[in-house]
Design a protein around this nucleic acid. Structure first.
Lengths: 178, 178
DNA sequence: TATTGTTATACTCTATAACTATA
DNA sequence: TATAGTTATAGAGTATAACAATA
């Protein structure tokens, strides 16, 4: 069985396929590759890039916050004061990157470090009042963009998409604990 | 109506929600935000990061190719010789980045530039025979990882996920032509 | 010995914009 | 004037690894 048929099966409606995917089919249809899996990966990347670009332009442009600095503020807003290793995992950055971002945010008075009394290797980070005000002033516009993007899909598609992504993320992250 | 109920509606099964999303619900359930949209965005980013990390480690680690260099080879493999502006869009990088990546790949003999005779502003890039061999030797392992990740989901979930992502990408990219 | 956070290095990619050569 | 690609600059993130302090 050719993978072309397999791919087509996933396609549902050919109008949904971009030019790139059509070229892929023409080029690779009998190379023994898993085209549906390719389509899954490449669409995850394309969606992520397009969404991040839009969020950065529309919601972060005038805030003087990098994508990562924003994520760190957000994590602290959601979770409250936490140890830096936790924040690094949650914001999905390396600990080296986190040190730098926290340095910057601390210099601007948005977060504060606190060394633990009981285990003095540990450092926790928390939003200051100014940091809380900042994230609370930025987040509504950020979320409005998220909503506008989600609304590009029918509710049933949104539903299915989130469910699939959650399962994928769950499987990937407990496979590779990092 | 609280957004908590709205969020829960999307959740389907609470075991699917990671700890982060549960904390979000607890923290933000009545802030007037669109939590399902937030869940969509954040799961796209988390999936993309986890997948890229795995592909880089498992398939690109020993190849001496950066993520972007790999994408450029892939684009040229799929499309054949193309003008650099086309390659930049397709590989989703800026033209400045592309110049650098093509410089590197050309120095290694994997691609070749060709200036057009009819419009001498234009430069096309194509794989050399060595470049073709390289991408053909790397891609099977890359695709095997893509398949392994896709197989973490049931076929119906894969199907729904790809369909949703395609539609999202299509809407986002014809909204913002770049 | 192991762990936490910090520091250091070298690399990749980005955004932005100026520059060249062509059209 | 506009366009295609190149070059330049500064910034942000990465992987990797060494390091100091602490456990």
């Amino acid at each position: 069985m050719g993978s072309l048929a397999e791919f087509d099966d996933l396609a549902v409606q050919s109008e949904d396929l971009g030019a790139q995917e059509q070229a892929v089919m023409a080029r690779l249809s009998d190379a023994g590759l898993d085209l549906p899996a390719m389509a899954l990966a490449s669409n995850v990347f394309r969606a992520a890039t397009a969404m991040r670009r839009r969020l950065e332009q529309a919601a972060l442009r005038d805030t003087d916050l990098s994508w990562t600095a924003f994520k760190v503020l957000w994590v602290l807003w959601i979770w409250g004061e936490r140890e830096t290793r936790f924040v690094a995992v949650e914001a999905d950055v390396t600990k080296g990157t986190l040190t730098g971002v926290v340095d910057t945010l601390e210099r601007r008075g948005m977060v504060a470090r606190r060394r633990h009394a009981d285990d003095r290797r540990l450092v926790s980070v928390a939003l200051t009042d100014d940091g809380t005000s900042l994230i609370e002033s930025i987040f509504p516009a950020f979320n409005a963009q998220e909503r506008a993007m989600a609304d590009l899909l029918h509710p049933a598609d949104q539903h299915a998409l989130v469910r699939g992504l959650r399962r994928l993320v769950a499987s990937l992250t407990d496979e590779e604990p990092r």
